[in-house]
């Protein structure tokens, strides 16, 4: 793998994470539990879509002058490089917010490192995104605490969400040859090196939320290298890509 190939993979990982999660969060628009949450979730989704345009825009430049839209709307599932965590369905509000929190925590730590990237373009995107993500984390963290330490029902639902999602956490810290090349070039950190900070942050919030982190460290994988996504991704893409696929070449 050349350095450019590795760089492209890295950019797709960043951009596909925000693309797919932004899509999932946008599914809440109009049907959230309360108006204020509806508006807040839309803000999160808007930030993530904006970040996608930046990551995939840069990826497209590396990938022979494609646009962010080309990459978002014209690749099939096996070419997506997002972690599995972000493609699992929303289910209830509890799982949506727990997924958001588990991702935001990783995202904020990752972006914090990328601000110091040797690649100026990466550093610039990270600088803009990290401000947005700091707020996402604050909000999702507070909501996880509020619901975990709320009523009996809300506590049970949040514990259930955590139990379901926890096996998807480990993939965010998997490291492979792409990561090795990014580390060597000073572009990005080893994901595995973020784990200690992540665990400390997540444990603190989940303890306050009176929730119990599952003991198993088992981790599903296959998203960030595209080897095996969940069945959910294909359904998401059939919706997201439908117009572009049905009317090739049309301008919207």
């Amino acid at each position: 793998m050349t350095r450019d190939e590795a760089f492209l993979q890295f950019l797709l990982r960043m951009g596909d994470n925000t693309l797919i999660l932004g899509h999932r969060v946008s599914e809440w628009c109009g049907v959230a539990p309360v108006l204020e949450e509806d508006i807040a979730l839309a803000n999160t989704a808007l930030d993530l879509i904006g970040q996608t345009q930046m990551w995939l825009g840069l990826a497209g430049e590396i990938d022979g002058g494609k646009s962010a839209d080309d990459l978002a709307f014209l690749r099939d599932a096996w070419d997506f490089r997002n972690v599995l965590l972000v493609e699992v369905p929303n289910a209830d509000f509890g799982r949506t917010l727990m997924r958001q929190f588990l991702f935001d925590a990783w995202h904020s730590i990752m972006l914090g490192r990328l601000i110091k990237s040797s690649d100026e373009r990466v550093a610039a995107i990270a600088a803009k995104a990290s401000k947005e993500v700091a707020y996402h984390l604050e909000r999702s963290g507070d909501t996880v605490v509020g619901l975990g330490d709320g009523t009996e029902e809300s506590h049970a639902r949040m514990q259930e969400a955590l139990d379901y999602l926890w096996p998807y956490v480990g993939e965010m810290f998997a490291s492979d040859d792409v990561d090795a090349q990014m580390v060597a070039a000073g572009i990005a950190p080893y994901p595995a090196d973020l784990r200690a900070e992540y665990d400390a942050l997540v444990e603190r919030v989940l303890n306050t939320a009176t929730l119990t982190i599952p003991e198993s460290r088992f981790a599903h994988k296959g998203g960030r290298d595209g080897r095996m996504h969940t069945e959910h991704l294909g359904h998401l893409l059939t919706q997201m890509q439908w117009l572009q696929r049905a009317y090739p070449g049309a301008k919207w």
């Binding site: 109009g30 049907v31 959230a32 539990p33 309360v34 949450e37 209830d92 509000f93 509890g94 909501t143 605490v145 509020g146 619901l147 330490d149 709320g150 009523t151 029902e153 809300s154 506590h155 639902r157």
Partner: peptide, 15 residues
């Protein structure tokens, strides 16, 4: 949306 959100509204208020 309203019914599904009841536990969320109640949970955050209880907290």
């Amino acid at each position: 949306a309203w019914d599904d959100g009841q536990w969320v509204r109640d949970g955050l208020l209880a907290h």
